[in-house]
Nucleic acid binder design. Structure first.
Lengths: 200, 200
DNA sequence: TTATAAATCAACACAATGTTGATTAATTGA
DNA sequence: TCAATTAATCAACATTGTGTTGATTTATAA
């Protein structure tokens, strides 16, 4: 139960368990996964699981928290001034680009946890993170006074759209590179869906 | 196990179970709900549950399917020509308005099933339905040739945004009437987030 | 009112959970 | 390198939920 990160065995076991989680979630979804399943797939004793995690929910939470932390760290590495600034027509917003890059690196787990068999609470947390990033990087450019709609709905709209774009991209096999996806996102946000699609 | 919809008792029992489901999902989320919980809350015998549903997943699915059907029926009642057409500045798109109205009527269940303790697969299904509605009502206005981004990303962006707007609205207590929300959605889609928020 | 269908109740085998104490194995670092 | 520490294994346990059964009571519909 202690902090056993300084033992090769513990690190290996945790990795085996997390890999098993990804595989099993792909098969049955998180609901369908049992601790038995996990330990059989990971080829470890069932008791060993409880040395590291309280239950399967604890395992999922820890995995998700780590991901959220890593994304936050990535975003922190960008100067807020540059975050939503494109140097040229072909350069997307750095924050959004970083986001797509991170998801590509961790595609297997992200795809399943954000998919239909995944975890609704994680989607909410991730959307919240995207909201915060948007607010931090866009606050100065926003003129809350004369917006055409209340800010809260604007931000809910944009962050959901951004997450939905990522989900669709993951679900369809990431056929376009992160840079291209980031450009698509930027166009949609700045120019607007209606204009982008040539409606009216 | 037969189709017992012609008996008052069966109808009553089903209602009790579904009400219990909503309440229990609010408390513990769907994962945490057991058949025992449901039948205790509904004050029925545990065996009775299995007379109507295979298991708790079957219960959730049947509830969700009914909702999707009802939404489709509502949308079918609108002439496609009018679906995304506003007669005046203060008249929102009929399809989007109907959507908000339906969610308001079934707010309790919708809020929890679309929230953090809800069902990720239902979100996907609902998003799919929104996509289809959009495509049906917008196809004629779309010029797939000279769109600035591939159509699939446009539609993923817009339908996710629309669903996100509904989720935020439910989560924050539906403080605005459906009509106002539908107008907000329309502005965001037609004018674009960037323009609406006055960015750049 | 009577035939039918729904709901109750007790009992069952089964599977997953989380915890235990004793034992073996791997690792760290002195 | 070797001793101390920590991780992993194993068998066993009580507990809880599951889904199904057969017999019985109760409500509904025709």
């Amino acid at each position: 139960m202690a902090n056993q990160t300084h033992d090769k065995r513990a690190a290996r076991t945790k990795m085996l368990i997390r890999d098993a989680l990804t595989e099993l979630m792909e098969e049955k979804g998180f609901e369908g996964v049992t601790v038995r399943n996990l330990t059989e797939k990971a080829q470890i004793n069932r008791g060993t699981f409880y040395l590291h995690y309280r239950d399967k929910y604890d395992l999922l939470e820890q995995s998700e928290e780590e991901i959220l932390k890593e994304i936050e760290d990535k975003a922190r590495g960008i100067n807020p001034k540059d975050a939503l600034h494109s140097t040229s027509q072909d350069e997307p917003f750095p924050v959004i680009l970083k986001l797509f890059e991170y998801f590509q690196e961790n595609a297997r787990f992200m795809r399943v946890v954000l998919g239909p068999k995944g975890d609704a609470s994680f989607q909410v947390k991730l959307k919240e993170l995207i909201k915060q990033q948007f607010l931090q990087n866009i606050a100065s450019k926003l003129n809350v006074e004369d917006m055409l709609v209340p800010a809260e709905y604007f931000i809910a709209f944009v962050s959901s759209a951004q997450l939905g774009l990522i989900q669709h991209w993951l679900e369809t096999g990431m056929k376009k590179p992160p840079k291209e996806m980031a450009l698509i996102a930027a166009k949609m946000i700045l120019l607007g869906p209606g204009h982008v699609a040539g409606i009216k």
